[in-house]
């Protein structure tokens, strides 16, 4: 039997996986229990990794202060910079996610029918797809309306790109979106809120937004339970409020000729 793992070994095996260096006080209890139970290094590392991915990196005592953890450059959100690249690796956690390929209203309707149990398989509730397509006088198209619509409702059709709000361990926030599809990015429960992402050195940043690409975006996984729960519970409501708010703002922008709609 090998010697029990040391703090240095554990730290090393975590950081080689792209994780930031945890605080010794975060690792010590995990290590102690591991040694008591005679868990090998790989097992202890796995436990520590899982705990770290499910922790809020901004809380004290999670990440080590020496070496100082890597954070986003101070002027990362500067919209005047048309194109730059990250000069370091940074681990961030996801605070919000939005599918910007679909209207909010479409997303609301999908959530609603899911809530009502209408998209359950085997029950053929049909939504006839938007007008333009139906009105095409092709009978080939009209005869398959049923199946088409049902298929779309089930899978939500094409997905993304997703826009993320991310935060480093000092609480600095930045938006990013998928320049190209990153497989692990999506709505909860696929990707949970609080999920940790490693933005690698060389990641492109344009006008204050990170351009996410699979080559330089490593989705480490994890979540922050409370944030994730609150996000999911408030999802539909939030979308509705945003839609209402945008509609109101547009009306104000247009003058008040539309005010009658309010009733």
């Amino acid at each position: 039997m090998a010697n029990p793992p040391t703090l240095a070994q554990l730290t090393h095996s975590l950081t080689t996986q792209g994780l930031p260096t945890p605080h010794p006080s975060f690792l010590t209890p995990i290590l102690t229990i591991g040694i008591q139970k005679k868990t090998p290094l790989a097992g202890v590392t796995a436990t520590a990794k899982l705990r770290l991915l499910c922790a809020d990196l901004c809380l004290p005592g999670i990440l080590a202060s020496t070496p100082p953890p890597s954070v986003l450059p101070a002027n990362i959100t500067d919209v005047k910079l048309a194109a730059r690249k990250l000069d370091r690796d940074v681990v961030v956690q996801v605070l919000d996610v939005e599918d910007i390929g679909k209207s909010k209203w479409e997303q609301i309707e999908l959530l609603e029918s899911e809530r009502k149990g209408e998209t359950v398989k085997g029950r053929e509730i049909i939504r006839v797809v938007p007008n333009e397509e139906n009105q095409q006088p092709s009978s080939a198209a009209t005869q398959s309306i049923g199946t088409q619509a049902a298929g779309n409702a089930g899978q939500g059709g094409k997905e993304g790109p997703y826009k993320l709000l991310m935060q480093d361990c000092k609480g600095n926030r930045v938006y990013g979106f998928e320049l190209t599809k990153v497989a692990e990015i999506g709505y909860p429960p696929g990707m949970r809120i609080g999920c940790k992402i490693l933005l690698k050195r060389g990641s492109q940043v344009a006008r204050g937004m990170v351009l996410l690409e699979p080559e330089r975006t490593v989705v480490l996984g994890g979540k922050i339970e409370e944030l994730d729960k609150a996000w999911r519970e408030g999802w539909e409501q939030r979308l509705r409020e945003q839609v209402d708010k945008e509609a109101r703002e547009r009306r104000q922008g247009n003058g008040d000729e539309d005010l009658m709609d309010e009733n």
Binding site: I100, G101, P161, K163, F177, A206, M209
Partner: peptide
């Protein structure tokens, strides 16, 4: 089409 103006502006500029 995308529903986020800032994102489209960035992509258009590129």
């Amino acid at each position: 089409r995308l529903f986020d103006r800032a994102v489209v502006v960035i992509l258009f500029e590129r």
